[in-house]
């Protein structure tokens, strides 16, 4: 009996002592005054504030059990990684298109079932989203955040860029993708673009053979985006070129970035996108809900050879 008591006392002391070790972020974090998502109706902003702000903004509202060592280390890492992926605190500094992109990113995080983290909702049940919250968000997006196509501008040809610089992570531009096959196309009403997803011959063969889990080394996707423009006939056509993005599969070479080399070139001058070598963590973060599909969103067309 006495021995047991000693052990319990020891453990209690250790737990108490451990409380002196705390993640720096949490002890320096001040309770920020509540900031709302300007321009978004209150009930919509409320959903994000209640369920997401603890990990995706400077405005963390921690409960007592979040502050106990070792739980607080987990909480701190969630906030660190969460804010890296999506930070609502930047809201006020963003222009409308970036705000809309952030909202669509957030909603898709919810719809993919990834967010809010289940380990968090287990202890913070009020953060769990209800059917009616999701319906409210979807309804708001479809009624207010749908991009309208611009008017058609007449355009004669498109000068080719002679030399295209490498992406900051070293991935080189692949100029021949327009001769590849279209494995899908998308009408992106979230940002008013229309896209073709091209697959190189290795990709097309892998689809036909049903060997896309994982995609074989040498697979390359190129995704082009154009602004949507409304023609005189009322139909929407591909207007100004926005960007081209690549995913290049090499499980060994690109082991550090989920097996893919990621790159994006923007605008009619094909300027490489990204400020640092690790800019591609942004690509991976949004493609992450597709990790069971080798990080690929597209459900491709099967392109059959009729002569076979």
């Amino acid at each position: 009996m006495k021995f047991k008591f000693k052990i319990i006392l020891c453990i209690a002391c250790l737990v108490l002592l451990a409380q002196l070790i705390r993640p720096e972020e949490l002890s320096t974090a001040k309770a920020q005054t509540a900031k709302t998502l300007t321009g978004v109706p209150k009930e919509v902003a409320n959903v994000f504030e209640t369920s997401c702000f603890d990990c995706h903004s400077a405005q963390t509202n921690l409960r007592w059990f979040d502050k106990i060592t070792p739980a607080n280390f987990l909480v701190a890492s969630h906030i660190r990684d969460g804010r890296k992926a999506l930070d609502f605190s930047q809201w006020d500094s963003l222009a409308t298109p970036q705000r809309n992109a952030m909202l669509y990113f957030a909603l898709n995080g919810i719809l993919s079932g990834e967010m809010p983290l289940s380990s968090y909702t287990a202890l913070h049940p009020s953060a769990k989203l209800k059917e009616k919250d999701i319906a409210l968000l979807k309804n708001y997006f479809l009624n207010n955040l749908v991009s309208k196509p611009g008017d058609a501008v007449s355009r004669v040809g498109q000068p080719k860029v002679k030399e295209v610089k490498n992406s900051p992570n070293g991935v080189a531009y692949l100029p021949g993708y327009r001769n590849w096959k279209a494995i899908s196309s998308t009408d992106r009403f979230d940002n008013g673009t229309i896209r073709i997803i091209f697959g190189n011959p290795i990709a097309v063969k892998a689809i036909h053979d049903g060997k896309t889990k994982p995609w074989p080394d040498g697979t390359v996707f190129a995704k082009t985006a154009w602004k949507q423009e409304k023609g005189k006939d009322g139909n929407v056509y591909a207007g100004q070129f926005v960007q081209v993005e690549f995913m290049i599969k090499d499980a060994t070479r690109y082991a550090g970035t989920k097996g893919w080399g990621w790159a994006r070139w923007k605008g009619e001058n094909l300027l490489p996108y990204g400020k640092t070598v690790k800019f591609d963590s942004e690509c991976i973060s949004c493609h992450r809900p597709e990790r069971n599909n080798d990080y690929v969103f597209t459900t491709p067309l099967d392109i059959k050879d009729f002569k076979k």
């Binding site: 096959k181 009322g234 056509y237």
Partner: peptide
């Protein structure tokens, strides 16, 4: 098979 040919344009009919 048209899908084997080169994609040249895309359009939407709302």
């Amino acid at each position: 098979n048209p899908l084997e040919m080169t994609p040249m344009a895309v359009s939407l009919q709302a």
